[in-house]
């Protein structure tokens, strides 16, 4: 555990909190991609299958991981519920149209072909890593289609990008402090994932410095 990792995890939780806050305060889910949220739910459910077999009391880190894993699954399920049931009428159904097959199928293929160990759980785990790296794409697509989003929604995406950036720093840190740290799947997928936010950040900061709502050209 290092500060980058801890900061990344906390920022990840914070981003979900910001998203829930946006939905609760505005009582609408306009500008939020249900497709991205459902992909995240899929990512968490597949990655954290090990919850079923891990004793959370084995170590402090296991307990920490278990708490976060349950939190991520529960909160993303809750957001999907809010979007599909409670605030259904406000959902940007006409604009949230990115074809997720183009993401799920390649992630399945990548997971099947490139994994650490040839076991069911390792293949599903690798799939979840590849899936997460591109899960934000429907959200970014919706964003550029509508052109403008509420501040809290843009803060949400910014926090997610920040969480990814901190994870990259965590890996750099671990690479130099742990002699046998060789996690190429996380590095490749994580770098792709973080790079996806680059364009968003450019416009985010451009608009923030002007104190405006996020507006894309």
């Amino acid at each position: 555990m290092n500060l980058f990792r801890l900061g990344g995890d906390l920022l990840h939780v914070f981003s979900i909190f910001v998203l829930t806050l946006k939905i609760k305060t505005s009582k609408n889910v306009a500008g939020i991609s249900l497709r991205t949220q459902q992909l995240y739910l899929l990512v968490f459910c597949t990655r954290y299958l090990d919850l079923l077999f891990t004793n959370p009391f084995r170590s402090g880190l296991t307990m920490y991981n278990t708490v976060f894993k349950i939190l991520f699954i529960a909160s993303s399920a809750y957001i999907v519920y809010l979007m599909r049931k409670k605030y259904k009428q406000t959902y940007s159904v006409k604009d949230d149209t990115f074809r997720v097959e183009f993401l799920i199928v390649p992630a399945c293929l990548a997971g099947t072909l490139f994994h650490y160990r040839n076991t069911f759980f390792e293949i599903v785990w690798a799939f979840s890593i590849y899936m997460e790296s591109v899960a934000i794409i429907p959200q970014l697509y919706l964003l550029q289609k509508t052109g403008e989003v509420e501040n809290l929604t843009s803060h949400y995406i910014a926090c997610l990008g920040g969480y990814r950036a901190l994870y990259l720093l965590n890996w750099v840190w671990r690479f130099f402090t742990e002699p046998r740290y060789r996690h190429w799947i996380e590095w490749i997928a994580g770098t792709i994932q973080t790079a996806l936010y680059a364009d968003f950040f450019y416009y985010y900061f451009l608009n923030k410095t002007k104190g405006q709502k996020l507006k894309l050209p």
């Binding site: 990792r5 995890d9 990840h12 090990d50 880190l61 991981n65 991520f72 390792e122 996380e186």
Partner: peptide
């Protein structure tokens, strides 16, 4: 390499 790789990150 360890027999069972335990993913220690989220």
């Amino acid at each position: 390499r360890r027999q069972l790789r335990i993913h220690d990150e989220l």
